[in-house]
């Protein structure tokens, strides 16, 4: 949701607390959450789940990360521009995959006949769906993170400049 950085205001340093327990627990938990998100992403075409759910989980993990650790530090790792970039990249990959069908003489977003379909039930199957799921995952997680950042920054501004 890059449309939110329209309303972005200058970021002001926020005094967030530094908490060991949260950090420790999160350091333990985050890999699993993200792994779970990845699982949902990669099995989007095999089981219930997919781009949105997986992306949401990953995005939530990123939010958790940025909530727990100092805001300043998350600025180093995943700043706003990056999340916006992820969003746009996800969408563009989606479109690009759609165009592949066109290049092979089929309709937009065509799967059958363009991509190898594989055996149902296996991870590498059902053609482009996996790529699309991943792209969507990138987009959704980026969106959620940028939403969060947007609200956070807007909020900070609200306190900063009356």
């Amino acid at each position: 949701m890059w449309l939110f950085w329209l309303f972005r205001r200058r970021c002001i340093k926020v005094n967030t607390m530094h908490d060991m327990v949260l950090e420790v627990v999160n350091r333990l938990l985050l890999p699993f959450i993200q792994l779970f998100g990845m699982y949902i992403l990669f099995h989007g075409h095999l089981s219930p789940g997919g781009g949105f759910s997986g992306g949401a989980v990953i995005g939530a993990s990123l939010i958790l990360y940025s909530l727990t650790f100092r805001f300043a530090r998350i600025k180093h790792r995943i700043d706003h521009d990056t999340s916006v970039f992820f969003e746009a990249a996800g969408a563009l990959i989606y479109v690009a995959v759609g165009f592949v069908g066109l290049f092979f003489g089929y309709n937009f977003l065509t799967n059958r006949g363009v991509f190898p379909l594989g055996v149902p039930g296996q991870l590498w199957s059902s053609g482009m769906i996996l790529i699309i799921t991943l792209a969507l995952g990138a987009k959704v997680s980026g969106t959620i993170l940028s939403l969060f950042q947007e609200l956070l920054e807007g909020g900070s501004d609200e306190r900063g400049n009356p």
């Binding site: 950085w5 969003e87 746009a88 969408a91």
Partner: peptide, 10 residues
């Protein structure tokens, strides 16, 4: 239009 909409902010 959609693609342009995603590229323009980039």
């Amino acid at each position: 239009l959609l693609t342009a909409g995603f590229i323009v902010p980039l």
